[in-house]
Amino acid sequence: MFESANIHHTMANQSKEVLYGLYNDEQVLLQAVHKAKADHLEIMDVYSPFPVHGLDEAMGLSESRLHQAGFVFGAIGTLTAFLFMTWVFTRDWPIIFGGKPYWSIPAFIPITFELTVLFASIGMVVAYYTVCGMAPGVTNPTLDDRITDDKFCLAFQTNGASQQEIDKLKSFLTASGAEEINAKTI
């Protein structure tokens, strides 16, 4: 979950020289990623206007652990709600409602459920934006405005790369079907 976030954070201070190719079709991009992996080229990142299926396997991304975090947040919600109501009605201020026991577990179920969902949702959403380095007003550098429209982008970092290596990457991008090849420092 944290790998690419780490890359973003460690590189945040220095500018990145990026060579990237823009593809018109996600299937062509997917094949290019497979080929880059086979050629042992180090991909910086892949950007797309929508989630491309099979891309995470192709890039070798590990599965997101966000849902595990969600389970933990949910469990915290369950315990918070149930233990708090238990404490209120058995310790802090016991009151008899309708002749029922103080510790009336079935009546605690609805609120316990709601807080489980609430904690899991808020926790996961906050975790998601945090690990993605996103927040209101944050500006993350982007390579091309058309990436959120109809272009699929395969990017290589070229800091300290020799001209020969850059040429190799360029020819790879051309051969794999990139419609445009650009360099940008972000």
């Binding site: 690419s4 892949v46 890039m59 997101s64 996961m124 996103m134 007003g137 982007t142």
Partner: peptide, 20 residues
């Protein structure tokens, strides 16, 4: 929120959407 469309972000986005 500074969205870039990076592959990892999309992967997390899908995971989040499914759990939500």
């Amino acid at each position: 929120f500074g969205w870039t469309g990076a592959a990892k972000h999309w992967q997390r986005f899908e995971s989040l959407s499914l759990v939500l």
